[in-house]
Design a protein around this nucleic acid. Sequence first.
DNA 1: GATAAAATTGCATAGCTATGCAATCAAAGG
DNA 2: CCTTTGATTGCATAGCTATGCAATTTTATC
Lengths: 337, 337
Amino acid sequence: MGARDVRPVTSVDVAKRAGVSQSAVSRAFSRMASIAPGTREKILRAAAELGYRPNRIPAIMLSGRSGMVGVVVGGLSNPFYVSALEHLVGALRDQGLQVLLVHVDDALTLDSALDQLLGYRIDAVVTALAIGSAAVARALGALRIPVICFNSRLTGPWISTVSSDNRAAGVVAARLLAERGVVRPVWLAGPLRNVASVARGDGFRAGLGALAGDLVSLRGDDTYESGYDAVSGMLTRGVRPDGMFCSNDMMACGAIDALRERGGLLCPEDVVLLGYDNIPQGAWRAYDLTTFDQGVERLVEAACGILAEALTDGAGPVSQNPVIEALLVERGSSGGG
Amino acid sequence: MGARDVRPVTSVDVAKRAGVSQSAVSRAFSRMASIAPGTREKILRAAAELGYRPNRIPAIMLSGRSGMVGVVVGGLSNPFYVSALEHLVGALRDQGLQVLLVHVDDALTLDSALDQLLGYRIDAVVTALAIGSAAVARALGALRIPVICFNSRLTGPWISTVSSDNRAAGVVAARLLAERGVVRPVWLAGPLRNVASVARGDGFRAGLGALAGDLVSLRGDDTYESGYDAVSGMLTRGVRPDGMFCSNDMMACGAIDALRERGGLLCPEDVVLLGYDNIPQGAWRAYDLTTFDQGVERLVEAACGILAEALTDGAGPVSQNPVIEALLVERGSSGGG
DNA sequence: GATAAAATTGCATAGCTATGCAATCAAAGG
DNA sequence: CCTTTGATTGCATAGCTATGCAATTTTATC
């Protein structure tokens, strides 16, 4: 007596029990359908008795729309992306959309993941990854599948990107350090393929003005360890900064720990330090990190707005690229808060 | 010219182009099907030219199995659960299963979430939440849908639970503190509904032996802030421990910060402190936390093994409750490492 | 070269719901 | 009581693939 030997209850079963037609059952479960209140109630009762649950699969076949969105995530080790995912799932649910989650790591190319998803006739793709492959983008475009990215650079008729204003935040960071009297600034960048990080660095350099000539640039890979290592190396080389801007909060935490342990430097007394993302750990007392809040809620809201538009019947290709202002959250590491 | 005006390419289209029957196309995309290599190649070429992608939806209708597993998560603010999710998604993918993700918070009850999922004919449910509602459990059981929980207490013919050996770890924690000469131990518990936390506390108390009489118990809600607040309150009341076991790492980090900031107490010099979960942040230098590693890989592996068995054709109800040993990871907060 | 065996291919169908259309029924107006 | 209008219901079908079965072709064996 295995799981699959039990034929699930169908609308026909319910119809038989309620003494109505199958279409009446279908209508009883549809909001806008025309059906007499009494009939509906009778059907719902019969359905409850039998444990009937409307099957969405046939409707998907007819409409070609599954109500599912493929969400592709990469490094969930960064709490910022976790938070974004959390909000995204909730927001999509509010639009009646389900989330088909794919986790992409080195072993699995994005292409293969999407191949899988396309078999399920997903309505759209949302991703925090930079979709590197133009081929993938083109393929999705050909299938008329809207793609929404976070902080990417990709463009195309069916591709949208929501970003925080990385460059502007970089400028603000530079101004803040200047205000605090910083004269030996350091920029701790993320990996080159991270477009957002590059923009933050550009803004920072631009905002420094004359000071930019003395700027020391370090590179990490967006992890805590890489921040710790980059700063350790810098201290070993004898560089002792009095201000730092880190491309994300995890690296910033690593930087703070390295400054203290390897250089005896404290924030903000010796180094005015800023991060980016406003992850929960940045607020932990050991770090008390001043940072930029990307406004996950607003990013997600924008993404869902675009999605709703793109999924409207009869809509053409939708391609938008809203930019959300990142807000400075001042805490101890900059001497504020 | 909207997205839905473009009829997707079907197997019939491919068949026409390749000059074969529709069934041949179906077989070309099936691994075990009998088809001549030449024919398959011809079909695959035609499929590539047309951009055909096999549609899984009709197969779901026929088989009643969607190849999708509903994964229900709660607080992703705990990196441990994020890590578990990450591994789970990968492991399920290796079994050819897709993940339909649901995030449950106050606004959304588990019942309503599952209601949604059942319309998609999910094959199973995996959750890190304690499914409180026996009604839900019964409903899923009636539908012959396997449910796999992490660290729960729920039982039933179709319900399995994988846990780490919380009680044993508690005992180990107590022994370690005793070894280190602790005489004023403190237990920082999670919320009462957290079965795992209760088991850890029981084990800890049992392992303390005679010392248990002097045990001070605090309660948090598994967040950093609650750990910080609980310990702050304790210090205010004049309690100054020399050893602590915290029900999870986030609370442990909060505890460390409170001990230092509010009591001037350092780990391990003044307080030998242990956590549970081995989250990445525990390894950050500011905390250097000794903790128990639940072995996410092994937990997930066990879960997927059960799942595979439960989804085997003709299998009856599967209910297993494996317990995985948690391994002590010694770092600085206990004076080890 | 003939027969047996195996491999390949095509035909026809099941699977379950939503929906257009026609039919039926009830209510309202004269 | 009859007609008109609107509400409700049933009928029939589309949607696309996987698969059992039969037909056909190829290969193997003697």
